[in-house]
Design a binder for these strands. Structure first.
Length: 822
RNA sequence: GCCGAAAUGGCGGAAUUGGUAGACGCGCUGGACUCAAAAUCCAGUCUGGCUCACACCAGGUGCCGGUUCGAGUCCGGCUUUCGGUACCA
């Protein structure tokens, strides 16, 4: 009979739910395991293969841990705020709340049919006021500490989504991370979280977490620590001072000009009146450049002189001041000392505009008068550098910095590439920012007792660059809580990455009312032990969550310094080479397969496809293989009804007294347990399943020929090994052979009988001059002298030794016998 | 440009610290069962040579070179693909 997956899967899902099999007892702390997947964005596209690939195998791992005796907690929830729901509302008129709720209830059903052991009592959704109230509370705490602030700054604006974006949310090609539209720069007043205050700690913390090296490296690069020196240059004949930041103070004597970012406020003040028009024109030309042009790698540097000069602090030289597009206002001081001889960008610029190039570091094996074709950026000996001549440049970095500090010309400084996190969005479907703007008092934070500031239902969604919340007068117009003057609420909402930066705390008690989360539980259960999700979040969610976690620790709400101890990225499943997305129309719907084969077969197939962290292009070619595996397993169990009760097995057998078939089966069972354990523990699901297939092949061949006890012994173990990878199938199979309750109710695991693992005989390879000439069977652990006798009496080996002299013999026990001849 | 990962049969992919390359599965070929088909079961399946066949021989893990008794695995130099990043002073 074909395995009736449909009725069996719903039968066990109902049984699990009715008996609350997956409810976690938080009071049991021995071997607690918090296993988390990134929660789901409830879009209209529902669950796709990518979600399945994230959730199914992770659940398998958690189930395995549960059988091993861990008290595993697996929650699931909804990252329910966000732009797509609002864009959908603009298009169709369906309110984001309504579409989100519909999507959530559909997705919840789909999730339940997957058969994961989620603790549904822990379910949460971020669009619920009982959740986002605490985003607002968090905002207020950051505000109190000066870590949430407003400033006017050039920011990324997505013309399609009509909102600003954080740096992290703009892709390398200058397009919006969400919709792919080209992002433009705008000067706007926006809310920021001061993540830069934690830059150093975010960097240090990476050392203590077990994450993929690649991800840690991405975060390190994103934080971009650089150690250098700030040096003040006076502006000639004026009071203004230009401060530059350099990582190469050893080249200070080689400065031949200074570059300031075109948007720098100083530019207006010190530009020579005669040159004002040219400078203004240049600044305009920079603004009109598209993002593509600006980021183009082949774009030539541009710039103009502003007619003012600076005085090099270390040698008193008068040098011209330029503005140029390659100086960035947002990094360091926005001013650069240019050393064309030893910096590639400065070299290119100086060559183009015929600015002087002065060599101050001599490359080994060159002469001072040699002409420079490119900048020399390596270590060398200082020249043209006054009293520092003759020093090695790496030593001079320190010496010149010291000189700068002693003479009060500047100071050593560490800079980070990381910018503050821009969190305000000019959109509706998010957490309202709990600030009231009063014409008299300015920014007035909403009092904690007045939280949540509830998101009103009635708003107009028309896009226009203004937050839709301004269209609801009863929300927008309020009296100032301090002085009673007519004021209005901040009309912006928060970036949804705020929601996801602390949700793992909330899962432990999502209904908790007294505080942001229930510290009585979180102190025991956070940090998360295993976190599984996509690598695309490396410098966004995964960085924000670490930041907020550290802030919460500073508030005394958690003892840990890091949110996620272990992290694994599932690979990306692509379709025809492209990432699956609704807009590309290449989404593969898992229902197509689960309705045909069942969710266990689909889960098995996803795991069997290849290494979990690699992903790959979607193909359903091999699904027949895992389907056959399920059918054959079910058939096998069906041939041994109630064997557990008819002839109960002992825990261990002496392999030496078993007959040949029993011995083979008994050994294979135990070898499989060992192999399986090693593979699945490290998320190597493909080889885990391969080992089960090997076992099934062996059992199909020989189990009939074994005693009833060995049959029970083998099937009981096989069934338990099946449970993590195909939970419904395993429950049914175990019931067939006589188990009376769910495997997961009182989890069991079988340790391998180590004595049985050792084969009696091994095949060893015999090589002559490194080439395989024969394989010979001999007893396990035979020593060299014994092996030698057998090897040299072998005809094939003798043939290759004929007439040659033996130079050397290499013997590796149980592996190889190599004879070197001439 | 810079940083990181990868490259193995017709396909997805296996291969502890260097030790029999191709586990497991898909597909394909042949056979059994069937009136027939599907399903299932059995056998074969890296390439080339030779052979009726078994056997045997040679080559083979992106390319070139090296270390070693022995390299998919280690070292040096490339090529291609995929991620990340974009003048960060």
């Amino acid at each position: 009979m074909r395995y009736p997956f449909s009725e069996i899967e719903s039968k066990w899902q109902k049984l699990w739910e009715d008996n609350k099999i997956y409810k976690t007892d938080f009071s049991k702390l021995d071997k607690k395991l918090y296993c988390l997947v990134m929660f789901i964005y409830p879009s209209g596209a529902k669950l796709h293969c990518g979600h399945w690939y994230n959730y199914g195998p992770t659940d398998t791992w958690a189930r395995y841990k549960k059988l091993k005796g861990f008290n595993a907690f697996e929650p699931m929830g909804y990252d329910a705020f966000g732009l797509p729901a609002e864009n959908y509302a603009i298009k169709t008129g369906i309110h984001p709340y309504d579409s989100t709720m519909t999507n959530i209830s559909d997705i919840r059903q789909q999730l339940k049919r997957m058969g994961c052991m989620y603790d549904w009592d822990a379910e949460l959704m971020t669009c619920n006021p009982e959740y986002y109230k605490w985003n607002q509370w968090l905002f207020l705490q950051l505000y109190k500490k000066g870590l949430a602030y407003r400033k006017n700054a050039p920011v990324n604006w997505c013309p399609k989504d009509q909102t600003v974006l954080a740096n992290e949310q703009v892709q390398a090609d200058g397009t919006c991370e969400r919709c792919g539209t080209l992002v433009i720069q705008k000067n706007l007043t926006q809310w920021f979280f001061k993540i830069t205050d934690y830059a150093e700690e975010l960097l240090k913390g990476l050392e203590e977490i077990n994450w993929p090296e690649k991800t840690k490296l991405m975060q390190r690069n994103w934080i971009g620590k650089s150690i250098g020196t700030e040096v003040r240059f006076k502006v000639e004949n004026r009071d203004e001072v230009i401060t530059v930041f350099t990582t190469r103070p050893d080249t200070l004597f080689g400065v031949t000009y200074v570059v300031i970012a075109p948007e720098h406020p100083l530019v207006k003040k010190i530009t020579k009146p005669e040159l004002k028009k040219g400078v203004d024109d240049y600044i305009d030309s920079i603004k009109s450049l598209t993002e593509i042009d600006r980021t183009s790698t082949i774009k030539e540097k541009t710039g103009v002189p502003i007619g003012a000069n600076a005085i090099n602090s270390v040698n008193g030289e008068i040098i011209p001041i330029w503005i140029a597009d390659y100086a960035l206002l947002t990094y360091g001081t926005g001013c650069v000392m240019a050393v064309p001889a030893h910096d590639e960008r400065d070299f290119e610029f100086a060559t183009k505009f015929s600015l002087p190039i002065r060599k101050v570091i001599l490359a080994p094996g060159t002469k001072p008068e040699d002409e420079m074709k490119t900048a020399y950026t390596e270590v060398g000996v200082l020249i043209n550098s006054g009293s520092f001549n003759g020093l090695n440049s790496d030593v001079a970095i320190d010496k010149i910095s010291e000189f700068v500090e002693i003479n009060n010309l500047g100071k050593r400084k560490v800079n980070y590439r990381l910018r503050d996190w821009l969190i305000s969005r000019q959109r509706y479907w998010g957490t309202p920012i709990p600030i009231i703007h009063c014409p008299k008092c300015g920014e007035v934070p909403v009092e904690e007792k007045d939280l949540p500031v509830e998101l009103p239902y009635d708003v107009e969604f028309k896009p226009g660059g203004e937050s839709p919340l301004t269209t609801n007068k009863s929300f927008y117009d309020v009296k100032c809580p301090k002085c009673g003057t007519d004021s209005h609420r901040d009309p912006d909402t928060m970036d949804t990455f705020v929601d996801s930066s602390w949700y793992y705390f909330r899962y432990l008690n999502p209904k908790f009312e007294a505080k942001i989360f229930d510290t009585a539980l979180t102190n025991n259960w956070v940090p998360v032990d295993m976190y599984v999700g996509g690598a695309e979040h490396a410098t966004m969610h995964l960085l924000y969550a670490r930041f907020i976690h550290k802030f919460l620790r500073d508030l005394g709400l958690t003892k840990s310094g890091e949110p996620f101890l272990n992290l694994i990225h599932q690979g990306t499943i692509t379709n025809q080479g492209a990432k699956m997305s609704k807009s590309k129309g290449n989404v593969v719907n898992p229902d197509e397969f689960t309705s045909k084969f069942g969710s266990d077969v689909f889960r098995l197939y996803l795991m069997f496809m290849g290494p979990y962290e690699m992903g790959g292009d979607w193909s359903d070619k091999g699904i027949a293989g895992t389907d056959r595996f399920v059918q054959r397993s079910y058939e096998l169990f069906s041939r041994f009804i109630d064997c557990l009760t008819k002839s109960p097995a002992k825990n261990i057998y002496d392999i030496d007294i078993l007959n040949d078939d029993e011995k083979t089966v008994y050994r294979k069972v135990n070898q499989t347990i060992k192999k399986y354990d090693e593979e699945i523990n490290n998320f190597r699901f493909n080889t885990t399943i391969a080992s089960l297939m090997e076992l099934l092949n062996e059992l199909t061949k020989s189990l009939e020929k074994c005693s009833g006890e060995i049959q029970a012994y083998s099937l009981e173990r096989f069934g338990i090994l099946l449970a993590p990878v195909a939970p419904h199938l395993a429950e049914e199979c175990m019931q067939i052979i006589g188990r009376r309750e769910s495997i997961f109710k009182n989890p069991v695991w079988f340790e391998p009988d180590l004595k049985a693992l050792i084969e009696d005989n091994v095949m060893i390879a015999v090589q002559v001059n490194g080439k395989l000439r024969a394989t010979i069977e001999m007893p396990m652990n035979s020593d060299q002298s014994f092996a030698k006798q057998i090897v040299f009496s072998d005809d094939k080996v003798a043939k290759h030794l004929d007439g040659k002299s033996i130079l050397k013999e290499i013997f590796v026990k149980n592996k190889i016998y190599n004879i070197v001849v001439k």
